[in-house]
Computed example of a mutant assay.
Amino acid sequence: MSTLYIDRKNTRMTVSGNTLIFYENGERASTLPLHIIDRICIKGDLALSAADLGKLGEHNIGVLILSGREQQPTIYLPCARKDALRRLAQAHFSQDNTFCTRQAQSWITEKIQREQDLLRELQTRPHRGGHQLHENLEQLEKSRLRLQNPINDLATLRGIEGSAASSTFAAIACVLPESLHFTKRNRNPPRDPYNVGLSLGYTLLHYAMVRQIHLTGLDPCIGYYHSIEHGRESLACDLIEAMRPLVTAWTIEAFHDRILRPEDFTIQNEACHMGKAARARYYPAFENALKNWQGEMRARCVALLRALGKACFNHPQTRACAEAFLEKEE
């Protein structure tokens, strides 16, 4: 089974028997057998009748419709055959401390290793920090070494991750131009241009991960490192944790390459705002970066599916859910 992605204009899709039929500009263009499709992701100007949507449901084909610049999921119809079982297992193991800490520890370890790689690269650039970057790297290495042994509570992991992030941003402050007025990570609202770029990038990555999670049949709101909180897709927060340094580094380069410029920003009531011209340059450039990261986002979802499937087989209370994880995700 696989996911079908549709992003075309002037296209109509119908279901006839066991076949999906596409029409472009009124002419029949192509067909596809339904039995090879698990889910359909739609983000173009596609015409689809309610009757055909119902037929897809009868064939247990999940449908995800995306909308807006951030391509947020606006309509989600699950793949009834297995999504309920996957989400049941997902919820069960969100209450299993061993499973939660094991997953979280692997994500935080990867994140810190990427932060180390970033700081090593920054050391090769002109900076104002003297030995600051070297000391920050030493702090990151201490954090990484703590993670070599199993850690059994999430609070400790959060402390390690927070300390590593502080060291990373302290080093970045030594490298960024003083005209950006960056001293540390801040948000809600961001108070300097670099933090504005970071917050927007993290948000766009987050919603891209939400889409991937929907396409694997999991619930984006049930996480393992980030607890359930009203209005938050906690699993998406989990799965982008190790990818955040990619956005951190990309945002540095965005200022270096003048995709973003100090003059693009204004301060009002202690909040920093990105101007329209900057947004026009930012969105296409970040979209290109997201395309490069798409494979990793998908791989992280699939890795979690495999971990849940393995855990189901090994736990008597969830063994009945294991069948939902047997089919290979493509």
Rank of each mutant, 00 (worst) to 15 (best):
R81H: 00
R120Q: 14
I61M: 05
S106T: 09
S49D: 03
R86Y: 02
L118H: 07
D83G: 01
E115N: 09
I108V: 09
N136K: 11
Q148K: 13
G68T: 01
Q90W: 05
A84H: 03
R87S: 02
E135N: 15
Q72W: 07
D52T: 05
I75Q: 09
K82G: 07
D83N: 10
T98L: 11
R81C: 03
H131P: 11
R128I: 07
K111E: 00
D117S: 14
E58L: 04
D83S: 08
F99M: 00
A80H: 14
I108A: 03
G130N: 08
Q148R: 12
K82I: 13
L145E: 11
L118W: 04
Q139V: 12
I75E: 03
H134M: 13
Q95N: 13
L53F: 15
P126H: 10
L119R: 00
Q113L: 13
T109L: 10
N60C: 01
Q72P: 06
A51D: 05
V63G: 02
G54I: 06
Q71G: 05
I61R: 00
H59V: 02
I61C: 02
R87M: 09
A80N: 14
R114T: 08
N136S: 15
E70K: 14
P73F: 01
S143L: 07
L145V: 11
P126A: 11
I65K: 04
L145S: 01
L122F: 02
L119Q: 05
R81N: 01
E141L: 06
C100Y: 07
L145R: 10
K82F: 10
T98Y: 04
W107Q: 04
G62V: 02
R125H: 13
S49K: 00
R128A: 14
Y76R: 01
T109G: 11
Q72N: 10
H59E: 00
N97Y: 10
S143F: 09
C79Q: 12
R128D: 09
H59N: 05
P126E: 14
R146I: 08
H127R: 10
E141V: 00
G68C: 04
T98G: 11
Q90G: 03
L140W: 02
N136L: 03
T109Q: 11
Q123K: 15
R81G: 00
S143H: 09
E110M: 08
A89K: 07
T98S: 14
R128K: 11
E121R: 14
Q116D: 05
L133R: 01
R120C: 06
L64K: 03
R144M: 13
H92K: 09
Q123V: 09
R69N: 12
L77R: 12
H134N: 14
Q105R: 14
P126S: 12
E141I: 00
S67C: 10
R146K: 14
